[in-house]
Amino acid sequence: MPLKEINILRRHGRQYVPDLRRVELRGIFRGRPVISGDITEAEAELVTSLCPVGAIGVTSVASGMEHASLAMDLGKCVFCRECEFALPRMIRFSNDFKMATNIRERLSVVAGADQPVRLDPEMIRKEIRSFFKHALKLRQVSAGGDNSAEMELNAAGNVNFDMGRYGIEFVASPRHADGIVITGPITQNMAEALQICYEAVPSPKIVILAGTDAISGGIFGGSAAVNREFFDKYPVDLFVPGNPPHPLTFINGVLDLIGCK
């Protein structure tokens, strides 16, 4: 009988991605966008009006710069790539999946600057790295999430990505958790449960937002059924953009946050 299992396992082979820090994604992937510095004002206006979520805007003229600068907010972007299709020579979504950061403003991609999105280590609360570097247990709360971000968070622990190798795991109870991972724009109907769950996590605790919906409300940002008062009360430790965020984006962001190599 076990022969069948052995045969299946032989075909199954080694599934885990050996180095999650350095992976090349095959084919196309809608990762960190790069905007050319040559983009004209008219072109900037075109994509600004095209964007379905208002993620693209002209930033105020920086001192010493002649042109108004175009910026794309990855916290609002739904990664539809329509701006690239409109201006393929000016905007390009790269394969760079490392887009997570602890500073909301760093999610702003500015025209002419092909800079990676990184965390600011100075701004990470000291207790995060001293407590959670080797083991981080997280409680997930879906608050209006569309189930794609939730599935990608599940996938982060599967045989391929296996983030358990770093001691990072999702747990069943907030009482067992060091922090919460929120998906979805936060519906009014889920706001109270989210609050209760957050309070049930022992301190020190962290808050991670996974996906555009969680970071800005995404396409549901203006809806009357959404209640984002949670963010008036509590700080956020990590923003993970994406629609949904790729498991590699999430895992790399968390590793950078807790200071794991």
């Binding site: 095209l50 379905p52 979520v53 739904v78 539809c80 549901f220 809806s223």
Partner: peptide, 25 residues
């Protein structure tokens, strides 16, 4: 708990691209 005001959003957001993004979400 997951009520996001979905159907109202289709009426509030009139651009076809916005509605397409709503539909896939």
């Amino acid at each position: 708990y997951q009520h996001r005001g979905l159907e109202s959003q289709f009426v509030e957001k009139q651009a076809i691209l916005q509605q397409s993004v709503l539909a896939e979400n």
